[in-house]
Amino acid sequence: MTPAADPAYVAFDGDRCIGSGSLRDVARAGRDALDRHSHASILVFDAQTSAPVDLDFRGSVDDVLARIPPATTPSADEDVVVTPPRGPGRPKLGVVAREITLLPRHWDWLAQQKGGASVAIRKLVDEARRVNEDADRIRLGQEATYRFMSVMAGNRPHYEEAIRALFAADPRRFEKLIAEWPADIRDHAARLAERAFLRQI
Results as ranks from 00 to 15, higher is better:
M1E: 11
A5F: 15
D6L: 12
V10F: 04
A11S: 03
D13Y: 02
G14V: 09
G14Y: 06
D15A: 14
S22L: 10
L23R: 12
R24V: 02
R24D: 04
D25T: 11
V26C: 10
A27M: 08
R28T: 14
G30W: 07
R31C: 10
R31V: 02
R31N: 09
R31G: 02
D32A: 14
L34W: 07
D35F: 02
R36N: 11
R36C: 07
H37S: 13
V44S: 03
F45N: 03
D46K: 04
D46L: 01
A47C: 04
T49D: 13
T49W: 01
S50V: 02
A51S: 08
A51R: 14
V53G: 04
V53R: 14
D54Q: 13
D54C: 03
L55M: 12
D56V: 09
F57C: 07
S60I: 12
S60Q: 12
R67T: 01
T72R: 14
D77C: 04
D77F: 09
D77H: 06
E78M: 11
D79A: 15
V81E: 13
V81Q: 14
V82R: 10
P84Q: 09
P84S: 07
R86L: 14
G87Y: 10
P88K: 01
R90T: 11
R90W: 03
P91G: 09
P91M: 07
K92Y: 11
G94K: 05
V95D: 05
V96S: 05
I100Y: 06
L102H: 00
P104V: 09
R105T: 13
R105S: 15
R105E: 15
R105K: 13
W109D: 08
W109Y: 15
Q112K: 14
Q113F: 01
Q113A: 08
Q113Y: 04
G116I: 04
G116K: 07
S118G: 15
A120T: 10
E127M: 11
E127S: 11
E127C: 01
E127V: 04
A128G: 11
R129L: 14
R130V: 09
D134T: 15
A135F: 05
R137Q: 06
R139S: 08
A144Q: 03
T145A: 00
R147I: 01
M149S: 01
V151H: 07
G154F: 14
P157G: 06
P157L: 09
H158R: 15
E161M: 13
F167W: 02
A168W: 00
A168C: 03
D170K: 07
D170P: 02
R172N: 13
E175H: 11
K176P: 00
K176W: 06
L177P: 04
I178A: 07
A179T: 02
E180R: 12
E180G: 13
A183E: 10
R186N: 05
H188I: 10
H188N: 06
A190C: 06
A190K: 03
R191F: 08
L192H: 00
L198N: 11
I201N: 08
